[in-house]
């Protein structure tokens, strides 16, 4: 295969992996915003919590657990963690303004980051899985099995999410709450319960992302912040509260970043992704996939 094509495919694959990461994070943010109108600035830190959970589970003193079980455990741990955060700190302020939400979740983010810093120090923690170093040759392209797993599971998760939101009773209830909260209370939908479940799903997605993708990165206390910011950018680019739109936007960001870093400049890759975000904000304030809402 010509070298140029190989490089192109390499960037494409990187972009898709990055996109999958952003998309898993973004989907959670978008669900929370859609259902309870809350912008969660601590969402990237859920990913960070998952990263450290993975680190601990991989280094248990009494021997290793199989990786697939670890993935499930990390997902569940972060889901429960998100539920705890919602119940203890956010539920009382859910009906307040978005300003209060922003301050509360930023507070949570600061606490999580610094508690992690105190426990784990700033040293980046490597979390290799058995699959990160296993390389297969596909169409003449050498790639790690971990990446194939990531892309495969990401696709499955997004399909499952579609099915869940569109077809299941719970998913329909979530959509109903997102459209008209007051009306739901009237017809007897338990809104606080729906909010709690939304946090669980959204935390679970962040945990899953951590279990899958942290092995390609390394875990640090501050890694959540940039993920939160990219995720929020994607949520707005996709159209606030539009689940699918935000997932597409996340992949767009991942690809743009990967190609720009590969072909133009690594240092300025974030300038381009945030620049793209702001451009979309100016040109299509309602988001790439959003509809303009009237009075």
């Amino acid at each position: 295969m010509p070298l140029q094509l190989e490089i192109f495919l390499e960037h494409l694959l990187n972009g898709l992996t990055l996109g999958a990461l952003y998309a898993l994070v973004t989907a959670g943010l978008s669900l929370i915003f859609g259902v309870v109108r809350l912008v969660n600035f601590a969402h990237g830190d859920f990913f960070m919590v998952g990263g450290y959970a993975l680190f601990i589970l991989l280094n248990l003193p009494w021997g290793a657990i199989p990786y697939p079980i670890i993935v499930i455990l990390v997902t569940l741990i972060v889901a429960v963690f998100a539920m705890l955060i919602e119940r203890l700190m956010l539920q009382p302020v859910l009906d307040k303004s978005w300003r209060i939400h922003a301050v509360a979740t930023l507070g949570i983010s600061i606490v999580l980051q610094n508690v992690a810093l105190i426990i784990f120090t700033t040293d980046p923690k490597q979390v290799p899985t058995p699959f990160t170093t296993k390389i297969v040759s596909l169409l003449g392209l050498r790639l790690s099995v971990q990446r194939i797993i990531i892309l495969g599971i990401a696709v499955l998760v997004f399909l499952a999410l579609q099915w869940f939101v569109k077809r299941t009773k719970l998913g329909k209830a979530m959509r109903a709450v997102s459209q008209n909260r007051d009306m739901c209370q009237v017809v007897g939908i338990d809104v606080p319960r729906i909010a709690l479940i939304t946090f669980a799903i959204s935390g679970g997605l962040a945990g899953l992302a951590a279990a899958l993708i942290a092995p390609l990165l390394s875990v640090t206390p501050t890694m959540g912040l940039s993920l939160t910011l990219k995720g929020l950018a994607a949520v707005i680019m996709g159209g606030l509260g539009q689940l699918n739109g935000s997932i597409y936007a996340a992949f767009i960001l991942g690809l743009v970043e990967s190609f720009f870093a590969g072909y133009v400049s690594f240092a300025f890759k974030d300038v381009v992704s945030f620049g793209l975000f702001i451009l979309v904000l100016f040109l299509r304030p309602q988001g790439l996939f959003g509809r303009r809402i009237g009075l």
């Binding site: 915003f33 910011l229 300025f268 300038v271 945030f274 100016f282």
Partner: peptide, 28 residues
Amino acid sequence: VAFFRVREVSFAIGTLGAVIIAQLIANN
């Protein structure tokens, strides 16, 4: 004039994006 085209959350996060860009440029 540019950012007030969007409101509330979008405005807050848009300006956040702008400051990140400014910092990246200062750094690089």
